[in-house]
């Protein structure tokens, strides 16, 4: 947290407060955040109605194919995207790489994704996100993981899914697992919540907060494998407050039309007639991958702890 004094010196401003950091995620709700690798894709995303873009070197499916170590993007590329669009620009740092996070903050990206899609830099610890003015979004596969990230200062959660596959099955699994975890905490007695906190390796205060409110303390989006308008609507049905679409748009045959359709389906997720209308004539979706064929070593969702 830092304080700066307004230009006229009269009114004190507090930046990086929890309300300000979690507040931007609230403004993104009901929207679609799209992975983009250059300014042209960023413009396509903005013109399709994306509520934010995620700037990265390669989309997850390409990272998967290329192998090797995936790192934070070139600042030059991120700045080019910031120049190109007026909507929020997010960027990814490696898990535990707080210097990449500092670089992204210095570039003034609007949100940092401490992401399992990049190769982890620390196998024991995630970044202490409370120390930053820029808010963080982090992936989670269950309630305990979500609450650990929130304890570290994450101002937004996204279910991990399995990035770069075009296969929504893991996103569904993670969203349902989190929702089931919340239901379990809500119905637990005060005594049982001590044991749940221990079992989930999550702070008791956050477990109790979830028990009292029946939801996560921050906004929860869905990510990892969403490739069609119906996929996006499905995740909204399951309780997602918005969606990230990575490879699904720019690996499809008609990215502008598909991007637009996914935005419409996310707004009108509970209106099958709209989802049907926007799904017509989109040409081929990205080719999908069977999760079972990836092997344990091929999974990105198991990165992070």
């Amino acid at each position: 947290m830092s304080d700066e004094v307004a230009a006229n010196g009269a009114q004190e401003r507090a930046t990086g407060t929890e309300t300000v950091k979690a507040g931007l995620a609230r403004m993104l709700k009901g929207g679609v955040i799209m992975d983009v690798v250059d300014a042209d894709q960023a413009r396509i995303a903005e013109d399709a109605g994306a509520c934010a873009v995620m700037a990265l070197e390669r989309i997850p499916a390409e990272i998967r194919k290329a192998g090797g170590v995936a790192r934070m993007s070139d600042p030059e590329m991120i700045m080019g995207i910031q120049e190109a669009v007026s909507i929020p620009v997010m960027a990814k740092c490696r898990i535990g790489h707080h210097v990449e996070a500092q670089v992204l903050q210095a570039l003034e990206v609007d949100y940092i994704d401490e992401s399992e899609v990049l190769t982890p830099a620390d196998e024991a610890s995630h970044v202490d996100k409370r120390a930053f003015t820029v808010p963080f979004v982090c992936g989670a596969t269950d309630l305990g993981e979500a609450l650990r990230r929130i304890a570290e200062g994450a101002a937004m959660i996204r279910t991990k899914g399995e990035a770069g596959t075009g296969n929504v099955v893991e996103a569904v699994r993670h969203m349902k697992t989190i929702t089931q975890g919340i239901r379990r905490v809500v119905s637990a007695t005060a005594e049982e919540r001590f044991a749940i906190a221990k079992e989930m390796a999550a702070p008791l205060e956050l477990v109790e907060w979830v028990g009292a409110h029946g939801r996560l303390p921050v906004v929860n989006f869905s990510a990892g494998g969403i490739a069609t308008p119906a996929d996006a609507a499905l995740m909204m049905h399951l309780g997602a407050e918005g969606v990230f679409v990575g490879s699904g748009i720019f690996l499809s045959e008609d990215p502008p039309a598909r991007a637009r359709a996914i935005v419409e389906a996310t707004t009108h997720w509970d209106d099958p007639a709209v989802v049907a209308r926007v799904s017509r004539g989109l040409r081929e979706a990205m080719p999908g991958l069977e999760i079972g064929e990836l092997g344990d070593g091929g999974l990105l969702q198991t990165r992070g702890w």
């Binding site: 700066e4 307004a6 009114q11 004190e12 401003r13 507090a14 930046t15 990086g16 407060t17 309300t19 300000v20 507040g23 931007l24 910031q82 007026s86 929020p88 903050q105 003034e108 990206v109 609007d110 949100y111 003015t133 820029v134 808010p135």
Partner: peptide
């Protein structure tokens, strides 16, 4: 003017 106060790192709370 959109985003007049700057990007998210400059977002703030203040008494008004």
């Amino acid at each position: 003017r959109r985003n007049a106060f700057g990007r998210q790192v400059h977002s703030f709370e203040a008494d008004v």
